[in-house]
Write a protein that binds this DNA or RNA. Structure first.
Lengths: 191, 191
DNA sequence: CCTCCTGTAGAACACTTTGTTGCATAGCAG
DNA sequence: CTGCTATGCAACAAAGTGTTCTACAGGAGG
């Protein structure tokens, strides 16, 4: 008893267009009317799938905001592991739909509890990944167990997000190299 | 040849209400209609002052977003100076209208060049203040001239903004103490 | 192949928001 | 007092939002 292929096709087509609108023109332009124009799907059909403007926008957000699962690399030296992990994070910010809508999610979060939840979960994953890298380094004896890991994780992640989402400055390889160097130096010099 | 007091009164009253709406309900609710309801000023008058929704919102933003001028304290030890400066910054984020609308400015910046400009200028001031603190410490010989000041400034500022605007986590005195400690330790341990 | 069921298209409708315009009125300035 | 100008009010157009009804087309099961 499979689902009607028409349902699936409609949802797929509509959400593709909604996602595109979200990235190109911002939240405000994700409307049933706009999606209808872009896809040829009739407005009434769209309202049947998503009863109001908000649910349509939420669906578009959720389609993009699903965080990619990053298997942490924890075998090499700390510097290498951290560089790899932050490189992936930076790549996501630079080149994926998530990076393009992140500012809008951040904005929504200021008035919308659900958006805050999305961010919290996303960040929890990120923090866990970085934490795994540091823990491995501690286990290897590469850095002292006394380093303030929590703070370092926050610094490691805060900088690229701040730079990209708030300052809108480029996030290139050179900057990342310097950033990782500094974080690792801190970790190694702390006793 | 003074300006008609009616003009001034209308602008003042309307912008007060617009600012309140902006803080309480978000950008989307700053509309001519809402301001009219809140103030008793007729919609047509509001349209005469601000021709469209966008200019009204911009006016409300600009009213709040004017960054307070912070005279840097650069006399004491680095730790003390930095703690004071970041304390002021944190206080602004926690308790002023600017802190409440900052997330929305950040969001607007993703599609609006002028919002990016507002942020860029704001951050330029902030960076300059922190830079003055580090320079003074270098001049006093408290830290080496070789510390990567640019990076440290970014870390020092990125963390509180990231924590508040993106993670929506509390920015309390304990956290700030730890943060300042870590930044200072880095500055002192780097050669 | 035929029939039932369900999803879709399209149009009509009400309501709200966003702007515009014209006119009367009230307040400021010389 | 007189002219100028800002305001208030009402009517209006246009777009966005959401509902409802009817007709039709495509899929599933016999």
């Amino acid at each position: 008893m499979k689902e009607d292929p028409r349902l699936i096709a409609t949802r797929q087509t509509a959400l593709d267009a909604a996602q595109q609108l979200l990235m190109d023109k911002g939240v405000l332009h994700v409307t049933h009317g706009a999606v209808s124009s872009a896809t040829g799907i009739s407005r009434s059909t769209l309202y049947r799938h998503w009863p109001d403007a908000r649910s349509l926008r939420d669906a578009a957000f959720r389609r993009i905001a699903t965080p990619p699962n990053i298997p942490p690399k924890t075998d090499g030296p700390l510097q290498s592991d951290l560089r790899w992990l932050l490189g992936v994070l930076m790549g996501a910010l630079n080149d994926t739909p998530w990076g393009r809508i992140a500012p809008q999610v951040v904005a929504a979060a200021s008035t919308d509890a659900e958006a805050r939840l999305v961010i919290a979960e996303f960040m929890k994953d990120r923090f866990a990944s970085v934490e795994a890298v540091f823990s491995a380094a501690i286990d290897r004896g590469e850095i002292s167990a006394d380093v303030p890991v929590e703070q370092l994780i926050e610094l490691a992640i805060a900088a690229p997000y701040f730079r990209k989402l708030i300052r809108h400055m480029p996030l290139d390889a050179d900057w990342l190299d310097q950033h990782v160097n500094l974080i690792c130096n801190i970790a190694k010099s702390e006793q």
